[in-house]
Amino acid sequence: MPQISVRNVSISYERKPIISEVSFDVEKGDYLCIVGENGSGKTTLMKGLLGLIPINSGRISFGEGVKANHIGYLPQQNPAQKDFPASVFEVVISGCLNQIGLRPFYSHREKRKAVENLIQLGIIGLKNKPFKSLSAGQQQRVLLARALCAAEKVLILDEPVSGLDPIITVELYEIIRKLNQEGTTVMMISHDVNAAVENANKILHLSRNSLFFGMTGDYLNSEMGRLFFLGGGKND
């Protein structure tokens, strides 16, 4: 049984259909990249998966111990956070909030989890630093640590490297690949087709009137993949 199964899902926004009849499966340990032009509905699909916006038809089901609302999410960078007074630890531990239920405060268990994830991502030294004083790459690691606090089984990443310099980009891809090898299922929206085909084992290519879903190798041989890949995905 797949961890996430999407069947004939359509989502429209203000009555305009954004994505229609999309189906795909995500198995445990997959590294799925969602690619496509701007406006092809990548972020909309992801928001539908996360339950942030309603889907108009179709079905999204979760299995293999994954529950809706227990998915680690790395959102696109939000300009409002640039000036937010919060320490790194405060941000990371807020990912544990879905595990404390009605309890008002974090217990030792959540604090330990936050520290473990800071260590795993190599940012334990930044624990008490203000979030807004960090570089963009460090901020992404902090938000990734928060996502891991929320859920270890599945991570959804929305354009995680946009705005990062090339060296930091490589480092972040490395971290994501390592997490994937350790058993975390990864779904990533990306503009970067080259990195997508290099890292992912599955590709979902959304386009206004066609769709590809399958293994990365097959994608490279498909017409859609060849066109998009040879064009370099120069859409950003």
Binding site: N69, Y73, N78, L97, A147
Partner: peptide, 22 residues
């Protein structure tokens, strides 16, 4: 005071909080 941590989460990043079931 009772909802302090939840208020922090929805203030810092509302869509993340929603996505993780808050």
């Amino acid at each position: 005071v009772f909802f302090y941590n939840k208020i922090f989460a929805v203030t810092f990043d509302e869509s993340f909080a929603r996505a993780t079931g808050i």
